[in-house]
Structures are given as C-alpha cells and as structure tokens.
Computed example of a mutant assay.
Amino acid sequence: MNFEIPDGLGDMLRDFTVAVLRERPRDLNDFAVDYFTKSRDSRKAKKIPMYIIVDDDTDAGEPDCDNFKPRTQKQNKFGRRHSVSAERYNPEDDSDDDGEQRIIHPKTDEQRERLLEAVCGILLFKSLEHEQMQEVIDAMFETRVDPGEHVIEQGDDGDNFYVIDKGIFDVTVKTEQGLTRIHRFEDKGSFGELALMYNMPRSATVTALTHGTLWAMDRTSFRRIILKSAFKKRQRYEKLLQNVHLLESLDNYERMNLADALVSRYYDDGQTIIVEGDVADGMYFVEQGNTRVTITKAGKEVEVSRLSPGEYFGEMALVENKPRSATVYSIGKVKVAFLERDSFERLLGPCLDIMKRKISKYEKSS
C-alpha cells in the first residue's frame, strides 16, 4: 500500500491549530466541524511544497553543535526525550517580557549565509518579520549525518525541527505491508514540524542516504518563534482590517483568513510601490506611513491623492482585470500589508460588489 501526503495538509493543519489557540473553544470537536465546513465552503485548497510533508523530529533538548560527537548508526544523533507530547503551548499566554532568554548558537558569517539561503523559501517562515528571521537563524544549530542514519524515527517524540542544507534523505512509513517510501529530499526541504506543532509522535522515519548537513531548531524555540509569530501577525492584521470600511461585509472567520494571507512589505522614502500600466499582482493595505498616488495626464505625471494607514490601493486592476491605472510612491518609510492576486480572488468575494461600485463612482468623477 502506497501512502502519499495530500497537497495542502500541512498548511490546513497549521491554520486550524492557530485558530484553536486563538479561539480556545470549549468543544474542540464542534469547533473543528464548524471550522472545516466553513473552510470547504469559502476557499480553495492551498498548495504547499513537498518539503512540508513529514511530521516532526525527535532530537534532544539543546545540543551543542560545537561539541557534537558522532554516534553509531543504531543510535539517533541526539538522545530521545520521552513524554514531551503532553506539553501545550498557548501563544496568548506567552508574554514578550517573561524573562526567558533566547537560545543563540554562534555561527560564522558563511554559516549564516548558508542557513538563510536554506530557510528563505520555506513556507513556515514566509510571514516572519526580519527580526523573527534573525531569531530563527540564531536558534538553529548545524549537525552532520552519515549514510544510513535515522534523523527521526516513526513513533518517537519530537524535539527538533530540521532544515536540509545538503544531502539526500528518504521518508518512510511502516505499514502492515512493510516499509513504504513516501518521499525523497535532495539537498533542500524541511521536516519535523508537525510533531512539534500538534504534539504528535513522529509519523514517519527520515533516513540519510548520503553524508549530509542539517540545521536543527529545538521544540521550544520553534514553537515560540513560529506559533507565536503567526498568532501576533493575525492579531496585528485583524486590528488593521477592522478599520477598513471596504471589509465590513466580511464575518470574523473571513477576516481572520484574510489576515493570515497578508504579507508585510517595506519601502523607503520615494520608492515606487506599483507602476501605472504594469500587470497587477495583488492589492495593498497601508499599515504604517503614507503614500502618494499619481496618474499620467497629457503626458505628465499628476498627483491625485494621498493614502494613510488603514487605506488601501491596487484593487481596481484586480477587479477589472486590467493593468495598473496609477503609480503609487512611498512618503518616508512605509509598511504595507500585501495580498497576492490568488488570495484576493479567493478571500474577497463578498467585497467585490462594493469595489465595483466604488470604481464606477471614481470613473464617473474623473
């Protein structure tokens, strides 16, 4: 029997976990039924890279990569810690000033560059701010593996999350019919997050086929950085979206999904954010700072408006499926929340009529 992890499973479970941590429902079963029913009715399945396939890792507490000592093939590289699956983490209860020190593993400049290159394309880290990405890099430690070594083993408790620097790794599961390979990583990818996020035993075994190098992060750092950042990002964007008149027709669930889809972008003074005539890739909500909007009239660029926090732009080209009708520049340092085209079409259906009416009024007055 062959087992394949469906596309979108990791993304779906992550979103559900964040929703549970935020809402803290009394009846988890009823909440799950309601959540996934709304999810089915309101959005398309997301696609995620194959590297979010395997569940979590199993490594021990806080290994010292400088003093790492190879073990025999029968041993896992890190001692296995037991009974960790009972731990729970609620980002809402985790204050920023709790006095707990960040774990920092020293690295050379060359190591930091390699690690940044390895993690920059991973979906889990996509929404992290610059400071949070630096925390990720600080918290990860380098470890080397030999051919035949089990990095994580099915059924074990999960202690670490792994990012592949180089090497080939097979992902296998034990079934009644025997051992089945479900995926192969080659010099890129990550694994081990599911056991850490959902307090599950490892659901698969990951074995090195070649000499390889991995970057690992302990479960405490992983949960504090990844889960807490997702929670704080949603809180911040929900607050921003509550003040956008356009989105009044969205219910709380729809607004929550929209907040999860937003990505921060930063611009220095005078930078061009969108250009008149370009193909539209998404819309923008002004989070911090101000912008100025210009259009071309009689061959000259004319300023037509300025936008402040809580206002938005870029939706006209998406609604009408036309090129950008204006150019937008930053005034001073600007932070915007960007919503890509696919997410716009999936999440803002209830607002399209309002947008069309607004565009119609704008065209009549211009």
Score class of each variant (00 low, 15 high):
2 N>P: 13
3 F>Q: 12
7 D>E: 15
10 G>H: 10
15 D>Q: 12
16 F>G: 05
18 V>L: 01
22 R>Y: 00
22 R>L: 00
23 E>F: 02
26 R>G: 13
29 N>R: 13
29 N>E: 14
31 F>W: 07
37 T>K: 13
45 A>E: 13
51 Y>R: 07
52 I>H: 07
53 I>L: 14
58 T>E: 07
60 A>P: 02
60 A>F: 10
73 Q>G: 09
81 R>M: 13
84 V>S: 04
86 A>M: 09
94 D>K: 04
95 S>E: 11
99 G>A: 09
100 E>S: 06
103 I>N: 03
104 I>N: 08
104 I>P: 03
113 E>C: 12
117 E>N: 14
117 E>M: 11
118 A>L: 08
120 C>D: 10
125 F>T: 06
128 L>G: 05
132 Q>S: 12
135 E>G: 03
135 E>K: 12
139 A>M: 09
139 A>S: 15
140 M>C: 15
140 M>A: 10
143 T>P: 01
144 R>W: 05
145 V>E: 06
145 V>M: 09
146 D>E: 14
149 E>W: 01
149 E>V: 07
157 D>F: 02
160 N>S: 14
163 V>T: 12
165 D>E: 15
165 D>S: 13
166 K>H: 15
170 D>W: 01
172 T>P: 02
172 T>I: 12
174 K>D: 13
174 K>Y: 05
186 E>K: 15
186 E>G: 09
187 D>A: 11
187 D>R: 12
187 D>C: 10
189 G>N: 11
190 S>T: 14
191 F>K: 06
192 G>I: 07
192 G>H: 00
195 A>N: 01
198 Y>E: 09
212 G>M: 00
214 L>D: 03
214 L>V: 10
216 A>D: 00
219 R>L: 06
219 R>W: 09
226 I>D: 00
226 I>W: 03
227 L>N: 05
227 L>F: 00
227 L>Y: 04
233 K>C: 01
237 Y>T: 00
238 E>S: 03
238 E>I: 01
239 K>T: 15
240 L>S: 02
240 L>H: 00
241 L>N: 02
246 L>P: 06
247 L>C: 08
247 L>G: 05
249 S>N: 11
249 S>F: 06
252 N>C: 02
258 L>I: 09
258 L>W: 02
260 D>R: 08
264 S>R: 02
266 Y>T: 11
269 D>Q: 09
272 T>A: 04
277 G>Q: 05
280 A>N: 00
281 D>L: 07
284 Y>P: 04
287 E>W: 01
293 V>G: 07
302 V>F: 08
308 S>I: 10
314 G>C: 12
315 E>V: 14
316 M>W: 07
320 E>M: 15
327 T>P: 04
329 Y>W: 02
339 L>Q: 03
339 L>K: 00
355 M>N: 06
356 K>M: 14
358 K>N: 15
359 I>N: 04
361 K>G: 04
362 Y>Q: 10
363 E>T: 14
365 S>N: 10
